[in-house]
Write a protein that binds this DNA or RNA. Structure first.
Length: 647
RNA sequence: GCUGACGUAGCUCAACUGGUAGAGCAGCUGAUUUGUAAUCAGCAGGUUAAGGGUUCGAGUCCCUUCGUCAGCUCCA
């Protein structure tokens, strides 16, 4: 019997027999660990506890405190779910069942969709499966054997078909349930203690809308009851930040689907103020960064989008043709614009351009319209009429990397710094349907990566996720319940300059082709404001608050003085509102608090006499600061100017 | 677009198995003049998303359309 040396995470070395399993090793180390052990990590690879270790290696025992533990538990939870479903619905075909962030799901092909009652029954059955404490047993089998074992599971057979000849086909069994699965798993179903099924939804098999729709069940699982309760509580709390609810309660916007249509936003005065402030912030920054401002038509002859290639590629998502012009047979086909790039291209093309002019940077905060599929609409996050802080940079291929670097700076200045957002960077590479040759794509993708690396920004790669004309850097952030949305985007484009035959004259007096960068910093103002609402739970920092100060006279006696104070604030550039209503002071303070106004300035007899204000801060309770009107005005103006985030 | 759930006053929600659509908040009117998170009273508010059907009778049952929510697909 050969012995091998296993190095543990603390650096100590154990000498054991070759073939020792994870659970045996854990038992050697200590009884407490043996009980807590869930799996092993052998030379960086997660493995079952029962799997033998045959050679010298770095070994760590995974317990519920390890970072690998939750995904492991949740993956096993998915199997327990499938075990339960199979007992209750023996004909259910099984699809995929992975762990996901905060939980797991499993897809089933069943004769009828699951009802909420089914879900309860399934959860009860899952608790039985947990109670029975089945071991998860791994087997590695030959292809023919696998095909026999899954003869009744068409979805699994399809999956086996796709496995390469060099791949190991592994099977996991827990009690009556057998699944084709890479593993690993926790040792037994009994390890699953604190879980809950959350909801069901349809999901296309293999994520392909041309294939059948399976029924997906989502659930969540945790090691400790407090964690499960905490998660459910976080979900509850997050729902309170929902921008659709706050948008109505704070009277920021409305979407009047019955009268005007879904996905079309009415910005009420307070929301419009936020939108205007953001537009101004990005336009100020653009002008300071060498951009020019343009305004271009909202409607164009359809031909423009044929030149650009958007038709036929995106025709389905464009609003249909509208007639215009002469009528009587020679009417011209027009389209409302779904994006600005062809328009800006035409501004570029209107002059002969010299290499001395480049980069030409054209910016426009513009409304565009996209006929998004009905099921994708979502509050402000996904709309049909959207306002982009769009810009297009025309430059030489050599300048592109620096220009992208500068765009990333703008993201830093306008998004990360002022709001403290956590951003997720992603490079999307060439898609299947695309224009241009591989050489151009290769170069473009390289330029994007280098700009990010130079800025030392870590990023993920979304293979095949690029636009049809070029690769892009997409920057994503999370909404209140953890869903990712695309915000800023920077796209490099060699194709539209080609299609529109753009040129500049080089130092050699010969024509050259520029490249184009499409870039939006906030992305769409609608989505960005939706995210801001959730980020701040409606309590905007002073510089963005549509109403900065509410002036509250204590009684009618101070109404005139308060009116005067509010007027002086407004004259100084502060967004102040007087509430001299006949309600009690308590009522009006509550009103201002629920409307999330950052400052309340209470004016009573003492304040009128002293030329002061009793200032109450949003969320600070009854704590108040008495200060001179002029001092308060300077304070608010300074916080506005510096875009202070608040405490 | 697809799957499922849902749609009652501006908002939150009632109305037993089909039998007179109701309450709180918000709104309006009046009284109250208030010192840091809801003063009191009265009034008004609805073609129950829209359209069709079954029935003596439909908010409730059936069909169609529109929309909302969750997820899938898509996102120039």
């Amino acid at each position: 019997m050969t012995t091998i040396q296993l190095t543990l995470p603390d650096g100590s070395v154990r000498e054991v027999e070759s073939g020792t399993t994870g659970s045996e090793l854990a038992a050697l180390i200590g009884p407490g660990l043996a009980k807590a052990a869930l799996a092993t990590v052998v030379d960086g690879t997660l493995r079952d506890l029962a799997s033998p270790i045959s050679e010298a290696a770095q070994v760590a025992i995974v317990t519920d405190r390890s970072p690998e533990a939750l995904p492991l538990l949740r993956h096993s939870a998915a199997h327990v779910l499938a075990t339960a479903v199979r007992e209750l619905f023996p004909t259910a075909a099984i699809g995929f069942g992975p762990a996901i962030e905060d939980g797991f799901y499993y897809d089933f092909d069943v004769p009828r969709p699951f009802t909420p009652e089914d879900l309860e029954a399934i959860e009860t059955k899952m608790r039985e499966v947990v109670e029975r404490d089945y071991a998860f047993v791994r087997e590695e089998v030959e292809r023919t054997e696998a095909n026999t074992r899954f003869a009744d599971d068409p979805l699994k057979l399809e999956r086996i078909e796709e496995l390469g000849s060099d791949e190991v086909i592994s099977i996991y069994t827990d009690g009556p349930f057998v699944d084709l699965c890479r593993g690993p798993h926790v040792p037994t179903t009994g390890r699953l203690k604190h879980f809950k099924l959350l909801n069901t939804a349809g999901a296309y098999w293999r994520g392909d809308e041309r294939r059948q729709m399976l029924q997906r069940i989502y659930g969540t699982a945790w090691f400790r009851k407090e964690d499960l309760d905490g998660y459910l509580h976080r979900l509850e709390e997050a729902r309170k930040r929902d921008h659709r609810v706050l948008g109505r309660d704070l009277d920021l916007f409305s979407i009047q689907q019955d009268v005007v249509g879904p996905g079309l936003v009415f910005w009420h005065p307070k929301g419009a103020m936020i939108k205007w402030l953001l537009s101004r912030a990005v336009e100020d920054d653009n002008l300071a960064s060498g951009y020019d401002l343009v305004y271009t038509p909202n409607v164009t002859r359809e031909e423009l989008f044929r030149i650009s290639g958007h038709i036929p590629l995106y025709e389905e998502n464009q609003y249909p043709v509208m007639g215009a012009g002469a009528g009587e047979g020679d009417e011209v086909r027009h389209r409302v614009k779904p994006m600005n790039c062809p328009m800006h291209t035409l501004v570029y093309k209107h002059h002969h351009r010299s290499y001395r002019d480049l980069p030409v940077r054209l910016s426009e905060v513009a409304n565009v319209y996209r006929n998004e599929k009905s099921g994708t609409l979502h509050g402000l996050m996904r709309v049909r009429g959207l306002c982009m802080d769009d810009a297009h940079i025309f430059c030489t291929p050599e300048q592109a990397e620096d220009e992208i670097f500068l765009c990333l700076d703008q993201v830093e200045r306008l998004v990360r710094e002022p709001f403290g957002f956590e951003l997720d960077f992603e490079v999307s590479t060439r898609p299947e349907e695309r224009l241009g040759d591989d050489e151009a794509w290769e170069m473009a993708e390289g330029i994007l990566r280098r700009a990010l690396e130079r800025k030392e920004i870590p990023f993920r790669v979304d293979e095949g996720g690029g636009a049809f004309y070029g690769p892009k850097i997409d920057i994503k952030f999370k909404d209140a319940i953890g869903r990712f949305w695309q915000g800023p985007t920077i796209q490099l484009d060699f194709q539209l300059p080609e299609r529109f035959d753009l040129e500049y004259t080089g130092p050699d007096n010969a024509p050259h082709r520029p490249v184009m960068i499409h870039r939006a910093i906030y992305g769409t103002l609608e989505r960005f404001i939706g995210l801001l609402i959730e980020h701040f739970a409606g309590a905007f920092p002073v510089w963005l608050a549509p109403e900065q100060v509410r002036v509250l006279p204590i009684s009618d006696e101070q109404a005139e003085a308060a009116r005067d104070i509010a007027q002086r604030m407004k004259a100084a550039g502060i967004r102040a509102v007087l509430d001299a209503g006949h309600e009690t002071l308590n009522y009006r303070i509550r009103e201002a608090e629920t409307q999330k106004v950052p400052y309340m300035a209470v004016v009573g007899r003492r304040e009128v006499e002293g030329g002061t204000l009793a200032v109450r801060e949003r969320g600070a309770g009854s704590k108040q600061t008495v200060m001179l009107l002029d001092d308060f005005v300077s304070k608010v103006l300074e916080e506005t100017r510096s875009r202070r985030l608040g405490d």
